[in-house]
């Protein structure tokens, strides 16, 4: 069972919907086009700290090959990357570096927390003095991929879940100005 367009209604994550379930015709079509482009061309930032990075490299190389989905161009600079796959344990010394990299990324940006160390601190949750207990205490996470380490196929499914999430989101969130009654 995976995350597809059909069962997205029961997707436990956050999905942007319109205010009254209605949408302007133009915005919907542009939304679809923009979301199609963004989801099919997610460029990951090369960020791998420990063992999950090995699985990420394996997913990038010939046998599992994430470039079939469009993720091939892994840029080393956060300015040009859309997606940061936090693969590996984040210690308290690395945490400000990760926050700075996330801040340097250009919008729209997405985060995948790969492996149990980034979801909650993993095997280091109870006893360690230096592991950040879950990377979502530092940066907002879109998709969590459990595993220690997750297999490359699990990483690919997580990335496909992110693609489905992007396709359902609103590309341009225009806040309507508050009127006097709403204040």
């Amino acid at each position: 069972m995976g995350v597809t367009e059909d069962n997205l209604n029961t997707f436990p994550g956050e999905v942007y919907r319109d205010d009254a379930g209605q949408a302007n015709f133009f915005v919907t079509s542009i939304d679809k086009l923009a979301n199609w482009a963004r989801s099919n061309s997610l460029w990951p930032l090369t960020f791998g700290t420990s063992c999950c990075a090995i699985e990420m490299m394996s997913a990038a190389s010939a046998k599992y090959d994430w470039s079939r989905f469009g993720f091939e161009v892994a840029r080393a600079t956060p300015r040009q990357a859309d997606l940061i796959i936090v693969a590996g344990t984040i210690c308290t010394k690395m945490a400000p570096v990760l926050k700075r990299l996330y801040n340097q990324m250009a919008n729209p940006k997405y985060v995948i927390a790969m492996g149990s160390c980034t979801i909650s601190g993993g095997p280091f949750y109870y006893y360690s003095y230096s592991v950040v207990k879950g990377v979502d205490t530092i940066i907002p996470v879109d998709v969590y991929i459990p595993g220690c380490p997750p297999r490359p196929e699990a990483l690919l499914e997580g990335m496909m879940a992110l693609q489905a999430k992007i396709k359902k989101s609103r590309a341009y969130v225009i806040d309507s100005p508050k009127t006097k009654q709403e204040e």
């Binding site: 109870y126 003095y129 230096s130």
Partner: peptide
């Protein structure tokens, strides 16, 4: 940290 009598807020047990 690696002393046996070390504890801080991060170590839950």
């Amino acid at each position: 940290p690696l002393r046996k009598d070390y504890t801080d807020a991060n170590i839950l047990i």
